[in-house]
């Protein structure tokens, strides 16, 4: 057959079909994050929680009312919900057993995992963009609804550190998801483990330094205001190694080697 036929091709010789590009895979993973009810509601919840936070700041008389304050406070709910989105991005493939389809379409599993990491990173950036917009609207409304003046004060450091903070939070979620491959287990442990860690390292004074260097909640706390500097960066590095790099690396290897069924 010399003409192009509607497949299946008669011969074994397959035409060279380009593999899916990383961009295609990232777009697919992004779509997976919002095409289910759970995903859509989590995204809506981030926006609603950020709105609620700025509303409180706006209407409570003695609350701080600069752009930097709005941006800083909206990171709290965002940083709480984004990791859950990161967890579900991975674990739903196992709880809904779509991993079978995903990995038969793309048998090179690290490509899928890379796409998930990039999609999660992008979601974190978009989350920050949303909080920036909400904080800006709140700043504009400030002189209207309160006695405070318009204050756009922020810094490049704050914007950069806020983005990094949310990227870290969402990727810790992705890492927990990869390690545990179960939505309820990963979500519960994601919230319980750091709390237990905080309590234990806080109770025993000899372990105080462990908290300083390995408690992610403590080490990343200054980032919402852009206040991280000096030794703080090293402490973020060590705690990220423990809570993000380690679970993700172990989970990554496990997914690459395990049987998908």
């Amino acid at each position: 057959m010399s003409t192009t036929t509607a497949a299946p091709a008669t011969a074994d010789r397959t035409p060279a079909i380009a593999p899916p590009s990383l961009l295609q895979l990232v777009r697919t993973e992004l779509r997976k994050s919002y095409d289910t009810r759970a995903g859509r509601w989590l995204l809506i919840a981030i926006a609603l929680a950020a709105l609620a936070v700025v509303a409180i700041l706006l209407f409570v008389a003695d609350a701080p009312k600069s752009f930097a304050d709005y941006l800083s406070f909206t990171q709290i709910p965002t940083g709480l919900i984004l990791p859950v989105l990161g967890i579900l991005l991975v674990t739903s493939e196992w709880s809904q057993r779509t991993a079978m389809t995903t990995f038969t379409l793309v048998p090179r599993r690290s490509r899928v995992l890379t796409a998930k990491v990039l999609a999660a990173t992008l979601l974190a950036v978009l989350g920050v963009v949303a909080t920036v917009v909400i904080a800006a609207v709140a700043t504009l409304l400030t002189p209207v609804v309160s006695d405070s003046a318009l204050d756009w004060g922020t810094s490049g450091a704050q914007l950069g550190q806020v983005v990094l903070l949310q990227v870290i939070s969402v990727l810790v979620g992705v890492g927990f998801g990869m390690l545990l491959l179960s939505s309820p287990l990963a979500i519960v442990l994601y919230f319980v483990l750091p709390t237990v860690f905080t309590i234990v390292t806080g109770l025993v004074s000899a372990l105080r330094w462990v908290g300083d260097w390995l408690n992610l909640n403590v080490t990343t706390a200054p980032m919402a205001d852009g206040g991280l500097s000096g030794e703080g960066w090293l402490q973020v590095g060590t705690s990220v190694a423990l809570w993000l790099v380690l679970p993700m690396a172990v989970g990554w290897l496990r997914i690459q080697r395990s049987e998908i069924s």
Binding site: T36, R37, Q96, T101
Partner: peptide
């Protein structure tokens, strides 16, 4: 391989 291995919410 398994027709029921699909996300029930999609």
């Amino acid at each position: 391989l398994d027709a029921s291995a699909q996300h029930s919410g999609r």
